[in-house]
Simulated scan of single mutants.
Amino acid sequence: MKTSKIIIYDEPTVPEIQIKKLEKFLHDTFHADTEIRKNFFENREDEIFQEIATTRVFELKKPFSKHIPTKLEIQIEKENIDNSQNEEKILYDGFEFQKIISKFIPSNENDQEILNIIFTNKLTCTFDESDFRYHARALIGTNPAIISTTGIIEAPAKPKEYYLDLMVNFTKESAEKIKEKYKGEFLEYNDSRITEVVEGYLLQAVMYYETGEAFCEDRECRLYNAHWQKELLYTQSNKKLCKNHEESLRKIINHS
């Protein structure tokens, strides 16, 4: 295993993330030294918030274009570290966001042997050349890896019937009733299942960094790239790896 240490940066605005449990999961799974740190954005100078604001996405059907932020937008970025969710659903280009985070990792910890994983409530997305539009993402791989707590909720789609019901009868009151109708079939904010699901994204982040292989095509594998909430909840409650990824994990551990 090329990674000798894994550092995870907490997101305290999402108390459902049991950070100690996640640290133990990483240590038990990869037998690597692990460390928990406070929120990556806490007590930072204005510079990082100014740079992050440049990664905001305003045109969903156009490739990334660097944004020149206003003073108000920079201030909002500073204030948003205390919010439990990205209420305005502001989108950020995930790769540009990751580049900026990388610049603020301490130089002695910004190497191949230390994997930094940052939790954030910002909604990261990437531009897909196949359909020429941005899509929300829960995970931006590489190092540092970014796990978006908002992306976990918003990126995988809810049941088709849920959207059809909204289209037929959309008011604020009916939306709440429809949400209640499908309760349990998808993750919500302040959902107690979030830690179990985050374990899967942590597993994906480390495996991707170690092997360079993105996700899995097997729906029974915990590394499966779930496009639907139903798939996500199934694979993460199942907690199994396919035979190929079980073997990959063994090789990674044995080469530690």
Rank of each mutant, 00 (worst) to 15 (best):
M1S: 05
S4Q: 14
D10F: 02
V14F: 05
Q18T: 13
I19S: 14
L22M: 06
K24L: 15
H27L: 07
T29N: 02
T34A: 00
F40E: 04
E42Q: 09
N43D: 14
Q50L: 09
Q50A: 08
E51L: 11
E51Q: 07
T54D: 04
V57T: 02
V57D: 02
K61V: 06
S65H: 12
S65D: 11
I68A: 05
K71M: 10
I76M: 09
E77K: 08
E79W: 09
N80E: 12
I81C: 04
D82Q: 13
D82H: 10
N86R: 11
E88R: 14
E88C: 10
L91Q: 01
Y92N: 03
D93N: 07
F97R: 02
F97I: 00
F97Q: 02
I100W: 07
N108H: 14
E109C: 03
E109F: 01
N110C: 09
E113M: 09
I114T: 11
L115V: 09
N116Q: 12
N116E: 10
I118F: 01
K122H: 15
L123Y: 09
S130H: 08
S130Q: 14
D131L: 05
Y134V: 06
A136M: 11
R137F: 11
I140R: 00
I140N: 00
G141M: 10
T142Q: 15
P144S: 06
S148R: 11
S148E: 11
T150A: 15
T150V: 10
T150G: 11
I152A: 00
E154Q: 13
P156H: 12
K158G: 13
P159E: 11
P159W: 10
K160S: 14
K160F: 15
Y162V: 03
L166P: 01
V168I: 14
N169P: 08
K172H: 14
E173A: 15
A175W: 03
K181I: 06
K181T: 04
K183I: 13
F186W: 06
F186C: 03
L187F: 04
Y189P: 00
R193Y: 03
I194M: 15
T195G: 07
V197C: 12
V198H: 02
V198F: 15
E199L: 06
Y201G: 00
Q204T: 04
V206M: 05
V206C: 05
V206F: 02
E210R: 05
E213A: 10
C216E: 01
C216P: 01
E220L: 12
E220C: 05
R222N: 03
N225A: 14
K230F: 08
L232R: 04
L232D: 01
L232Q: 03
S237V: 04
N238E: 08
K240P: 02
C242Q: 07
H245W: 02
H245L: 02
L249C: 06
L249W: 01
H255I: 06
H255R: 10
S256C: 12
